[in-house]
């Protein structure tokens, strides 16, 4: 497998996790840039071209709420989870637990099989 193929699969794998990471991170109110930094610091770097359209989509689906406020004399858009977003985050977290448990089990079997 070439590096490009690995990179494509890696991105595909991470892409599915980004909305969950964003929702989880927005349990605490933040604006776009600090959210991006917080995600990067936790090893979940998301480029701005992906993050801002995603924030809009999540907001249009009613999972996020936002408002413009001034901070350091500059207008910033602060995002936080809506009540619907909190409900979905709970469900997605449970789903995430199931997926990781299943994958761990599958990987364990694969490791046994490859020996």
């Amino acid at each position: 497998m070439t590096n490009d193929q690995f990179e494509n699969l890696r991105l595909e794998l991470r892409r599915g996790c980004v909305p969950l990471a964003v929702l989880a991170e927005l349990r605490r109110e933040q604006y776009g840039y600090t959210l991006r930094k917080a995600l990067a610091e936790r090893g979940m770097a998301v480029d701005e071209g992906t993050l801002y359209p995603l924030l809009r989509r999540l907001e249009s689906h009613g999972l996020l709420a936002s408002d413009w406020r001034e901070e350091d004399k500059r207008p910033k858009r602060f995002y936080h989870l809506s009540s619907e977003g909190q409900r979905i985050l709970k469900q997605l977290s449970a789903e995430w637990e199931t997926i990781t448990a299943s994958l761990n089990e599958i990987m364990k079997e694969t490791n046994h099989g490859s020996r």
Partner: peptide
């Protein structure tokens, strides 16, 4: 969306 998106992107670029 023009005004909203541009204001947000401008803020992101300035912060960076």
């Amino acid at each position: 969306q023009k005004a909203d998106v541009i204001a947000e992107l401008a803020e992101d670029i300035r912060s960076q």
